[in-house]
Simulated scan of single mutants.
Amino acid sequence: MRVAVIGAGALGSTFAALLDRAGHEVTLVARGEQLKAVREHGIRLGGGFGDWRTTRLVAVPRLEAGSRVDLVLFAVKAQDTAAALDEHGDTIGGAPVLVIQNGLEGVDTVSSALPDSSCIGALSIVAASYLEPGSVTVTTPATTYIGRGTGSPDAEVRKLEAELGEALKLSAIGNFVGAQWTKLLVNQLNALPAITGESVQAVIADRPLRRIMARSMRETVRTGIAAGIRFGSLQGLGNLRLRFFALLPVTLGQALPLLFALRMGSVPNPGSTLQSLKRGQRTEIDFLNGAVVRQARSLGRTAPVNETLTELVHKVEESGVFLTPGDVGHAVETARH
């Protein structure tokens, strides 16, 4: 299969390398030092999916007009969606698009911009670190879930699962919209590492920070419930379990971030938002914690913990200075009261 991967960050590079290893014809759209490194040495994939250096992959700064591809993997960060669509919308043409993106709006945004393309959503639980051009390390290998809408997987989703499921560890799921909300909860792991400069595991090991994370997760679930969401099944989490979690006091709710840390293992996971900061890039926090804030406001509610965490990530973006756990705790408590 001829596949174009737009977005050469941690996930885009991981998927490009896995497709190359499976024998597919891959074109990776990359920029700057990443483009240079991949052109010279390919992508070196290490960690949970095994070791591989790409052999046939082609790296380009943009897709050329008339490019013939069977599938596009749209793997840019949510905040870069508009720019990527402006640049590549005409060259994608009517090729089907797999949108691998966090947040709630990615599939709808891409579908609206590319009316001739059939768009399928993807939720990846893979934890991968890209802190050096041309190299990506998978710290947590996991399934990537694909689907669209609130119903059962349709024929096109099943076809993609059959064609690339083994190479990319894809699994077709129903109630994809509900699963997006469950993934939004999982993405609550990102903000505090970005604010403090610590790994996800280190943040969860810190009891005051863990309580803040549990509060942000509970706030996310309660907002989803208010919006009438039936949470999708993802990583052992589902609608009934998350609704029960929303009722728990924060002391007991800390069990959820502790469970995530247990599944991650001992290899420090910086989280994607902290990785963006370390590369000097804008983060997608407005589409993670910020998405909870927007949803709450649309319902006439507030989400003070998520709003504070969003503001603190932006503060670190602007200053380049990480905050102490004490500073974070003070800001959150002030917002809550």
Results as ranks from 00 to 15, higher is better:
15 F>E: 07
211 R>H: 09
40 E>P: 05
325 P>V: 01
192 L>Y: 04
11 L>P: 04
90 D>Y: 03
298 S>K: 14
107 V>D: 00
238 G>R: 09
57 L>K: 04
132 E>M: 06
90 D>R: 15
148 R>G: 12
122 A>C: 15
47 G>P: 11
301 R>A: 12
287 F>W: 06
337 H>F: 06
297 R>L: 12
55 T>H: 04
217 M>V: 03
114 L>C: 13
275 Q>I: 14
215 R>P: 01
209 L>C: 12
75 A>R: 01
230 R>M: 04
16 A>H: 05
192 L>E: 11
59 A>H: 08
46 G>C: 03
93 G>V: 01
77 K>H: 09
30 A>V: 07
303 A>R: 05
20 D>F: 00
183 K>Q: 13
51 D>G: 08
228 G>V: 10
88 H>P: 09
12 G>E: 12
190 N>S: 08
213 M>G: 12
323 L>H: 05
18 L>N: 06
193 P>I: 03
227 A>C: 08
250 V>E: 11
80 D>N: 13
270 P>I: 10
143 T>A: 06
64 E>N: 06
52 W>I: 00
76 V>Q: 04
83 A>M: 07
81 T>C: 07
237 L>S: 15
53 R>N: 07
146 I>M: 07
186 V>G: 06
227 A>K: 14
40 E>N: 11
176 F>A: 03
13 S>Y: 11
96 P>R: 10
147 G>M: 05
184 L>A: 08
240 L>W: 12
196 T>L: 14
169 K>L: 02
126 V>Q: 01
244 F>S: 14
200 V>Q: 15
261 A>M: 11
55 T>I: 04
248 L>T: 09
15 F>P: 07
36 K>V: 14
215 R>F: 07
213 M>I: 12
224 G>M: 08
89 G>V: 03
176 F>T: 02
123 L>S: 06
170 L>T: 01
19 L>W: 11
64 E>I: 01
263 R>Y: 03
257 P>I: 06
260 F>C: 01
29 V>W: 04
224 G>V: 01
178 G>H: 03
205 A>P: 05
148 R>D: 08
188 Q>H: 08
182 T>S: 13
172 A>S: 02
105 E>Y: 10
170 L>M: 00
130 Y>A: 13
31 R>D: 08
58 V>T: 13
301 R>P: 09
315 K>P: 00
123 L>F: 01
20 D>Q: 05
271 G>T: 08
57 L>C: 07
67 S>Y: 02
126 V>S: 02
6 I>E: 08
77 K>V: 10
57 L>A: 05
252 L>W: 12
127 A>G: 11
268 P>E: 14
81 T>G: 03
184 L>P: 03
242 L>Y: 13
222 R>E: 15
280 G>W: 10
312 L>R: 02
147 G>P: 05
291 A>C: 08
33 E>M: 06
199 S>R: 09
270 P>S: 09
156 E>S: 05
224 G>K: 10
197 G>P: 14
93 G>N: 06
267 V>I: 14
189 L>I: 10
286 D>M: 07
40 E>D: 14
310 T>C: 10
234 L>Q: 13
273 T>S: 09
236 G>P: 04
213 M>R: 11
215 R>K: 15
238 G>V: 15
89 G>Y: 05
